[in-house]
Design a protein around this nucleic acid. Structure first.
Length: 436
RNA sequence: GGAGGCGUCGCAUAGUGGCCUAGUGCGCCCGCCUGCUAAGCGGGUUGGGGAUAACACCCCUCGCGAGUUCAAAUCUCGCCGCCUCCGCCA
């Protein structure tokens, strides 16, 4: 855990503080519990004494006075104990709260092999596909916004009019293209056995905290003050919360969900970054995979999620690379994260299209999602993982990589059945021009 | 938005301040009995935490959280959820 903190560039001393706090908590708890046990015994005897006294009084027995005295004495003793118990209980509760606060400060323990360092210290695992040579083809590629405007697919100006900067309309073929892409993602995952879902995009505070989105990334989150609700930046929140406080059954293998949802992000820390087009926007749509599995299966499951992402990227036929994100760029919940980044010709670099995280037991621990322990009695925390299968941003890669000299855009083969453009506005689904 | 009702063990229910260490039925698990998918009998069956080599044992848990009390499933307040009726509305 110390090594993990260091690799993330965080304070390893937190670990010692956690151990000390745990020690204090256990001590306080033990003290409280033993006195509490004593209190219960005494308190119960008060009931018996009072009963005996009442009976004697009713019967007019001679020893009634004596019994009354005994009962009052017992009550006084119980009262004293009660005071002490209360104060010990408060101590124990405080020690517990201190531990919880410290634990929240530490990110998930990273998996061996994750590169140390920050945002730029990722390791490239693999590069797939070849970037097109536009010079050889004899034309200068347009960026996704220029293409989108020409096709009547993206309208940033009206987006800004209605929602402000970083809002947009997808119009005509743009709207259809996004639906086609996300529908293809839903279909792929459903065929692979995922349970398809459309999830809430507002979540309560406890779920946001449990999913790990209120720590380092709290600034990214829209909050609805009047209702104390949060707009989620990903359906991961709703999917992680789905089984909160539940004991789930993993005997037949991982439980996998695939969700379509709108996603909302404030982009608080990214002023001036990616201001053109739909690369970085306040609202977009996403299809997300989410898996609950046994901790010992999590790394294998992580590879499976990555494979499903690769399958999707192959379908849209764009060049991309896979990176192993460095520890300092992981975010609190993730123990390892693989991103797939697509080649964006007009930027001459790779941009993130997918991200799959193995959160091991971090989220499930906070959200209290468990399974019956297969190795014995009791329950144990499960592991959670997530991964992207498609987002609005994918349109950037599709538009730029498949643009033609005549200004049209070739639609990848796999996407055509989902586009449903045949006959509509005289379009063929092999290319999109405009909806006119 | 208004009015009312409700939340107890996997399910159904009992429980209106101390004999509740939460009872009963069903389901489930283990055993016994019986020659036959049954019935009967006995035991077990929420979850969390502490303690332990492992047990034993102890504490907490009656939607959640505070409070009153020597003592709370039971009384008070707040929150969450569900149901019924009325109103409003995509």
């Amino acid at each position: 855990m110390r090594a993990s903190q260091t690799a993330r560039g965080e304070d390893p001393e937190v670990v010692d503080a956690i151990l000390a706090a745990d020690e204090r908590r256990r001590g306080a708890l033990s003290e409280f519990e033993s006195l509490r046990a004593e209190q219960k015994v005494v308190s119960r005897s008060v009931g018996a004494a009072m009963g005996a006294f009442q009976k004697a009084k009713k019967a007019g027995a001679a020893d009634a006075d004596h019994l009354e005295k005994a009962a009052h004495h017992a009550r006084a003793q119980a009262g004293e104990l009660s005071e002490q118990v209360k104060s010990l209980e408060a101590d124990a509760a405080q020690a517990g709260a201190e531990l919880a606060t410290l634990l929240r400060r530490a990110g998930n323990v990273i998996i061996d092999g994750v590169p140390s360092g920050g945002e730029d210290d990722f390791a490239v695992l693999e590069t797939i596909g070849q970037a097109r040579d536009f010079a050889a083809e004899g034309f200068e590629p347009l960026d996704h916004l220029a293409i989108g405007e020409r096709l009547g697919a993206i309208d940033m100006e009206r987006g800004a009019k209605v929602g402000g900067a970083r809002f947009y309309y997808l119009t005509g073929v743009g709207a259809l293209l996004e639906l086609a892409l996300l529908n293809m993602a839903m279909a792929q995952a459903t065929a692979a056995g995922f349970t398809p879902m459309i999830t809430p995009t507002l979540a309560r505070s406890d779920i946001m905290h449990g999913a790990g989105f209120m720590d380092a990334h709290a600034e990214e989150v829209y909050r609805l003050e009047a209702d104390d609700l949060y707009l989620t930046g990903t359906s991961e929140v709703a999917l992680a919360g789905y089984h909160a406080d539940e004991i789930i059954d993993l005997t037949a293998g991982p439980q996998r969900y695939v969700a379509w949802s709108a996603c909302y992000r404030r982009e608080a820390g990214s002023h001036g970054k990616d201001t053109r087009g739909i690369i970085r926007v306040h609202q977009f749509h996403k299809v997300e995979m989410f898996s609950y599995c046994r901790p010992e299966d999590a790394e294998v499951e992580h590879q499976r999620l990555l494979d499903w992402e690769r399958e999707m990227l192959a379908k849209i036929e764009v060049p991309y690379r896979i990176i192993d994100t460095a520890a300092g760029d992981l975010g609190g919940p993730a123990a390892r994260k693989f991103d797939c980044e697509a080649w964006v010709p007009t930027q001459g670099r790779y941009r993130e299209l997918t991200s799959t995280s193995n959160c091991t037991t971090y989220q499930a621990r906070r959200l209290n999602t468990r399974e019956r322990d297969p190795n014995g009695s009791g329950t144990r925390t499960v592991a959670t993982l997530n991964g992207t299968l498609g987002t609005t941003r994918w349109l950037v890669a599709i538009l730029e990589n498949h643009q033609q000299a005549d200004g049209s855009v070739r639609v990848p083969e796999a996407l055509r059945p989902f586009l449903g453009l045949d006959g509509a506005g005289g379009q063929r689904s092999s290319t999109v021009t405009s909806m006119a």
